[in-house]
Amino acid sequence: MDVLRPIRGDGGRDVTVVVCASRPLTRAGLRAALNETAGVTVVGDAETPMQLERLLREQAPQVVVVDDEGCESDGIELVRRLAERSGGRIAVVVLTELELGERVLEYLRVGARALVLGDGSLGEIAQAVVAVASGHALIAPPLAAVLVDLMLRRIPAAAYGAGLSSLTPREQETLGLIASGLSNQEIAKTLFLSEKTVKFHVSNLLGKLGLRNRSQAIVYARDSGVPLPG
């Protein structure tokens, strides 16, 4: 992705936006919400790729908001073409869904500057438009969590520390309980240990495996086939 830079017009003029979505209600709702946002003006909306091409020629918008189902075309390919065509001069905001998993990450790869939940509030979408217009990137927190999980799952086994064989039986048991979502206090009750002792085991196993936090420990446990209780 190109280095982000502000795209607001000279003299403080409004940022121009085009909305691309196949559903009429989506286009109408986005247009109304964005036109009510200070510093933003919607100069057109498109239902199809052909309509979008025409608007890009006629209006030269600074931001395009793309619905994942958008414009009767594959959203990822559409965003790729927008990024290649504009050389980063057009910032793309994508409306997507949590369930799309790997597709969410692919949008970032092809050049999207902001990812927002399609069923989120119109205010959040407007915030994303303002953010990218100021040269920032924005990812809605629920989507950020999906991205972090996807990236953690891609950490190769060699990137970890010494491996499960380096853990004591108690540390392996503790790792399994962490992967089950238990807190230190809950683990202490389960193993009939003090919470201080559990913290000691957690710190030790993280260090041996080369992990930074519990989130990575959960991913590691699942990827390594650590048996879960129950």
Rank of each mutant, 00 (worst) to 15 (best):
G9W: 05
G11L: 00
P61G: 01
G87I: 05
V94F: 01
V65L: 02
V63K: 02
E195F: 01
Q62I: 04
A144M: 14
A126E: 02
L167M: 07
G70D: 05
A83K: 04
T197H: 13
A188I: 04
N213E: 09
V130P: 06
R31H: 03
L30M: 14
V65P: 08
K208Q: 06
D10N: 00
R154A: 14
D14P: 15
G11H: 01
L206P: 13
V42T: 03
A221L: 00
V18E: 10
A21W: 06
P6T: 11
L55M: 05
L98S: 09
E58T: 10
H201I: 10
P61K: 06
R85D: 08
E77Y: 00
A91G: 10
A126G: 13
Q185K: 11
L25N: 09
G75R: 02
L98E: 14
G123E: 15
H136A: 12
L152D: 15
V15S: 10
D119T: 15
S166C: 09
L4M: 14
D10K: 04
P141H: 08
L117K: 07
R13N: 00
T168S: 15
R54D: 14
L147R: 11
V116I: 08
L182R: 09
S166Q: 12
A188M: 04
V202H: 00
L52K: 06
G163P: 14
R23A: 13
V202T: 13
I125F: 09
R212Y: 07
V226I: 05
Q216M: 15
L147H: 10
M50Y: 11
E97D: 06
Y107N: 04
P141K: 08
H136C: 11
T41D: 12
V92S: 02
A60T: 10
V40T: 04
K208E: 08
A145R: 14
L206M: 13
E124P: 05
L78I: 02
L152R: 14
R54C: 09
V94H: 05
K189L: 13
P142I: 00
R109H: 03
S73Y: 10
T168D: 15
E124S: 11
V219C: 09
G210M: 12
P229Q: 05
R170E: 14
G161H: 09
L147N: 06
T16K: 10
L4Q: 15
A145V: 11
A158P: 09
L211S: 09
M151I: 12
G11V: 02
R57G: 10
